[in-house]
Computed example of a mutant assay.
Amino acid sequence: MKAVLLSVHVVLAIILIGPLTAAASLFPRYAREAVAAGQDHTGPYSVLQALHRISTGYAVAGVAVPVFGIGTASAMGVLGDYWIWVSMALTLVGAALLAWAVVPAQRRIMELLQTPGGTDSVPALLPRLGMVTGLFGLVWAIIVVLMIVRPGSSTGV
Rank of each mutant, 00 (worst) to 15 (best):
M1K: 12
K2F: 07
K2P: 00
L6R: 10
S7Q: 11
L12C: 12
I14C: 07
I15F: 14
I15S: 12
L16C: 13
I17A: 04
G18F: 09
T21C: 10
A22R: 01
A23H: 01
A24M: 08
A24C: 11
S25F: 05
S25Q: 10
F27L: 08
R32L: 06
V35H: 00
V35P: 01
Q39A: 07
H41M: 08
T42G: 09
G43S: 10
S46Y: 02
V47L: 04
V47M: 04
V47R: 01
V47P: 01
A50C: 09
A50W: 12
H52D: 13
S55D: 14
G57S: 11
G57Y: 05
Y58D: 11
A59M: 08
V60K: 13
A61P: 10
A61D: 13
A61I: 09
V63K: 00
V63R: 00
A64I: 11
V65C: 02
P66I: 06
V67D: 12
G69L: 02
I70Y: 09
G71N: 10
T72Q: 00
A73F: 04
M76C: 11
M76V: 13
G77H: 04
L79A: 14
G80S: 15
G80V: 09
D81R: 06
D81I: 03
W83P: 10
I84L: 11
I84R: 05
I84P: 06
S87K: 08
L90D: 09
L90A: 10
A95H: 01
A99T: 05
A99G: 14
A99F: 00
A99R: 04
W100T: 15
V103Q: 13
P104V: 04
R107C: 02
R107E: 12
R108Y: 00
M110C: 08
M110Y: 03
M110E: 13
E111H: 11
E111I: 08
L112D: 07
L112S: 08
L113T: 03
Q114W: 01
T115F: 00
P116F: 08
G117N: 06
T119L: 08
D120K: 09
V122P: 02
L125R: 03
P127A: 05
P127H: 04
R128Y: 04
L129Q: 07
G130S: 11
G130F: 00
M131Y: 08
V132C: 06
L135P: 00
L135C: 12
G137P: 07
L138T: 15
L138K: 05
L138H: 03
V139I: 14
W140S: 07
W140H: 13
A141C: 03
I142W: 00
V144Y: 03
V145C: 06
L146K: 15
L146D: 15
P151Q: 14
G152M: 10
S154P: 06
T155Q: 14
G156V: 10
